[in-house]
């Protein structure tokens, strides 16, 4: 397959947030077999930065169209929340306004709390110890 003429040289920065070069994206498509903008994103990190892909992902789509065909370029970007960046402390402060998540935390990080047993953390809306899941060792 001959390489199509390209406007941007391989050493051009395609994703400025993550510092991903155009050549890296081309390699992900041509050599690593990525067939959608979502797969290129997972392998190269293009589009994973603070701009959430709004600046660079159309350039990734263009590389896909050139190197993998229109079908690959047409796969829609799977947008991950949040739709705009939110500081951790502000997001954390929303906890009291949002419904408690039901179910348990399958926290691998609480393994080994006691006697090698796997601990399970139950989220409890009535927990007075604010922001702390109730601990159960099970």
């Amino acid at each position: 397959m001959t390489k199509p003429d390209r406007e941007q040289p391989e050493d051009l920065v395609l994703c400025r947030c993550e510092g991903v070069m155009a050549g890296t994206v081309e390699d992900a498509v041509a050599r690593l077999g990525c067939r959608s903008v979502n797969e290129v994103k997972k392998i190269t990190r293009a589009g994973m930065g603070p701009c959430l892909g709004t600046v660079c992902l159309h350039l990734v789509q263009r590389a896909l169209a050139d190197l993998a065909g229109p079908e690959a370029a047409a796969v829609p970007h799977r947008v991950r929340p949040p739709v705009r960046a939110v500081p951790l402390a502000r997001l954390g402060a929303l906890a009291e306004h949002l419904a408690e998540p039901a179910g348990t935390v399958n926290a691998d990080v609480v393994w080994g709390v006691s006697a090698g047993a796997r601990g399970t953390v139950t989220l409890d809306a009535t927990n007075e110890d604010e922001g702390t899941p109730r601990r159960e060792v099970g």
Partner: peptide, 14 residues
Amino acid sequence: LIPGAMAKSAGTTV
């Protein structure tokens, strides 16, 4: 995603 869980996770991180 469950927004309440995101908030709890963010608060715990801080």
